[in-house]
């Protein structure tokens, strides 16, 4: 009897691990299809970003391929409005109170991470992808994929892809207890043969001037994070002044492809604040005092992880 149970459990375990591998490969296949669809289809989506207990932001997101040029338009529908237009690798921002500007980029920094949408395989160092099941979202049959932080130091995600077109229809950000922190929900989607008319009318010649950065290396600071979550890297560092207050800060931008995390190091001012941790929308704001310095971390990461990054900061002399 015992050998039978042993044999059965062995088969069960090997079958389960084989299924895991399958699920992982299938999930990557799905994400590959999504990346392909995002860049090749003509689509017009309406979507909302929901933060439980917070705000609802409606957007319209259009994408088209016109004469070999990709044109993308993301428009915020509430309030004074915010428009982002991308023509191939030039992204232009039109916002109230700020002069319009363009930068070179292959994706819009929108509601869903551009890396996830266009190059999901770049996230495999930080996240596991697991195929979960099928369900119905925005009136369409979808495949659900879980995106799980490998070292559990970041929030997890659930992504629903349209079975027919592979376009993303819903993205939930969840904390370790499974509580939803942010939802991107597509409410309607239309995939068309020809690009939407307004995209064809984008005045490509009159986009704002492309902004080009100066090398910040000259006055770079020497703060380094001694510990970073798996797959997270330093994207840039500089020393700049904050808007509004004009206070100078030593700045680090970290990213794992899915989330961007800002690290600010400032001298402790006359007003000591001790340690602060709270959530603004889906961003965590974490601030702590280390010696005579205030370290502030902002980003979509758990406060425990933010604390660990803050505590690991060291000065390195090259």
């Amino acid at each position: 009897m015992k050998w039978l149970i042993g044999a059965l459990s062995f088969f069960y375990i090997s079958a389960a691990s084989a299924a895991d591998v399958d699920s992982e490969t299938d999930a990557r296949q799905w994400l590959g299809n999504m990346a392909q669809a995002m860049q090749s289809l003509n689509y017009d989506m309406s979507l909302v970003i929901l933060q439980p207990g917070g705000t609802v932001e409606p957007y319209r997101w259009r994408h088209g391929v016109i004469d070999g040029k990709t044109v993308e338009h993301l428009s915020m529908l509430n309030g004074p409005g915010r428009d982002v237009v991308r023509v191939d690798n030039v992204v232009s921002y039109f916002e109230p109170n700020v002069p319009a500007f363009s930068i070179h980029s292959t994706s819009i920094n929108g509601p869903i991470s551009g890396t996830l949408l266009r190059n999901p395989s770049a996230l495999t160092a930080s996240y596991d992808f697991v195929l979960v099941g099928r369900s119905r979202v925005a009136g369409r049959a979808t495949q659900q994929i879980r995106i799980i932080s490998r070292d559990k130091s970041r929030y997890g995600y659930s992504l629903w892809l349209d079975q027919e077109t592979s376009l993303p229809l819903k993205l939930d950000m969840l904390d370790s207890q499974g509580k939803v922190l942010e939802q991107v929900q597509i409410t309607s989607v239309a995939v068309t043969v020809n690009a939407e008319e307004s995209l064809q009318n984008v005045d490509v010649a009159n986009l704002p001037e492309v902004l080009i950065a100066n090398p910040a290396a000259a006055n770079a600071h020497r703060w380094y994070a001694g510990w970073l979550p798996d797959g997270m890297e330093e994207i840039m560092r500089d020393r700049h002044r904050l808007p509004v207050t004009g206070a100078p800060v030593d700045y680090l931008l970290l990213s794992d492809g899915l989330i961007d995390v800002s690290v600010y190091v400032q001298p402790v001012g006359d007003a000591t604040t001790g340690e602060q941790a709270f959530r603004v929308g889906s961003d965590t704001y974490f601030s702590t005092q280390i010696g005579q310095l205030t370290v502030t971390i902002v980003g979509k990461l758990p406060p425990q992880t933010a604390n660990r990054i803050a505590q690991s900061l060291v000065v390195k002399v090259p």
């Binding site: 992204v91 921002y93 930068i103 070179h104 980029s105 920094n109 902004l211 080009i212 950065a213 100066n214 090398p215 910040a216 290396a217 994207i235 840039m236 500089d238 904050l242 808007p243 509004v244 207050t245 206070a247 800060v249 700045y251 931008l253 990213s255 961007d260 800002s262 600010y264 603004v280 961003d283 704001y285 502030t296 902002v298 980003g299």
Partner: peptide, 29 residues
């Protein structure tokens, strides 16, 4: 706090720009 939050969102937007500058395609800003 507002200043830091606004700056965080600006930096996220400007990161591609900064990444290019680190790769050497650099002029004035």
């Amino acid at each position: 706090i507002n200043a830091l939050l606004i700056d965080h969102h600006q930096q996220m937007r400007l990161k591609q720009l900064q990444m290019q500058s680190q790769q050497g395609e650099v002029v004035e800003l």
